[in-house]
Each structure stands twice: as structure tokens, then as C-alpha cells.
Amino acid sequence: MSARPEQQRIEANGGWVNGAAAFVGDNPARGAVITYYQRTRHLFGKLRIEVLDASGALIDELPASTRRGLNRVVWTMHRRAPHVPPAAQLAFAGTQGPRVLPGTYTVRLHKNDTVYDSQVTLGLDRRVKWTPADRKAQYEAAMKVYALFNDESALFGRIAGLREQVAEAGKGRPKGEALLRRLEDFDGKLDAIRKKIVATKEGGAITGEERLREHTDQLYGAITSWEMGCG
């Protein structure tokens, strides 16, 4: 298993229509290419690829092909996406984790009980003007918002769990009973908190509804997409 050193190139999207005389070639892969060889097809047991940082912490997990021969998988050089609470519209920026810092990472292939390790070194795009310190500042800011997403999801999960318990406690109780009214009142308060965390109107972004989760996504996207340095 091997992976060549890779630049963290400026991330961009877009394009334009070229004339018939224009030459168009393939762009480099948008990530670090990891290559591994299997003498035979993997048929039974676990086969997975992990990426770990210098401390041994799991950064990402990649799909692994089971076919025999040379196999390649591209790591986007991002952490796993944050846990974003579910809502009526998609949190676009939150579908991807922040780009990791330049450095050396361990690529670990698990094939049943056998483990194969290799390393990949990531560096800054040679065209950029900012420094590793700028990238670190951006990464740390992104991770603070990343943690906020996780906190929102944890709170959302606790609210959902409490509402399930309230619904279960209210089953079979006669309408108008004092305890049932108290349960319904408590459920309403829980739902009001939920609606402060996430957008609940169906119709996606066109509804214009923005709650804590949606504002978090905007902030997260603004930080992770910034490519101009911090100077």
C-alpha cells in the first residue's frame, strides 16, 4: 500500500464553455490517491481503510474495493463530516468535514485480522501566499463550529428522547386528565426548543426559515471555504 505526497490545492468549482480548438485534459485527483494491491479478490471478512493523525486519532474512513489487482481510493484530505441535527432542509456545508492540516498521516488497511500501514504527507498548494499558521488558524476556527454542530445534535437527540418518553407516558390516559395535560404542556415546551435549533418548514431553503443549525452551517461554510489566508 502506498500514497504519494500530495498538495492541498485550492478548492474551487465552476467552468466555462471552450471552443473546438481548446485542449482539455484531466485535472489531478481532488485528494490524496492511495494505492494498494490484492493478489486475490477479498471474499470474506472486513476490509476497510482508515486515516489517522500523528496522535493515532481516527480522522476518516474510506471505502475499500475488494477486487484483485491494483486498487485506488482517493482521500479528500478532510475530516469526517460533523454530526448535524436533522431538519426540513439540507445543511450543505455540514455535509463535509474541514480540510485537515498539512502534515503526515497514517493510512491503515484492515484486511480481516491483518493490518497494513503506510503514510501520506500533505503540503500546502505551492501557489498560495498564506502560511501553515494561517491554515492552522482556519482549521481551529472550523473545529470550534464543528463542535457546535455536534453539541446541537446531542441536544436534539436528548429532546427527541424526552418526547418519546412523554408520548409513551401519555398512552392510554383519558383525555382531559391532569397528568396528560401536564405531559402535553411539557411536550410543547420541548418542541418549541427543537424549533429554535432547526428549521421545520418543508420546502427547503426557499422557505427562508433559519434557525441555530442553519446559521451554524453558514458560519461553518464561510470558514471552511475561505482560501485567502488570515493575513
Rank of each mutant, 00 (worst) to 15 (best):
G103S: 01
A81C: 03
G229N: 03
L219E: 04
T35N: 11
L122H: 03
R181I: 04
P102S: 09
I223T: 04
G45Y: 09
D134Y: 01
T114N: 10
R48K: 09
G56F: 05
A88V: 04
L180A: 09
A88S: 15
R9G: 02
S2Q: 13
K46G: 06
R126F: 10
G221M: 07
G94M: 07
I34S: 02
P82Q: 08
Q218Y: 04
Q138M: 11
T207I: 05
L155S: 07
L212C: 00
T76W: 01
E184L: 12
V145W: 03
S65H: 03
S225E: 13
Y37D: 08
R68H: 09
A154P: 02
V166N: 00
A169F: 00
E214C: 05
W16M: 12
H78C: 11
R9C: 03
A64D: 07
G157S: 13
E61A: 10
S153D: 15
G19C: 10
V120S: 03
S225P: 00
T121V: 09
L62W: 02
R48Q: 11
L155E: 09
F186M: 11
M77T: 11
D26A: 15
D117F: 06
Q119P: 02
G19H: 10
N112D: 15
R68K: 13
H110M: 06
R68I: 02
I10C: 02
S225H: 13
Q165L: 13
Q218D: 14
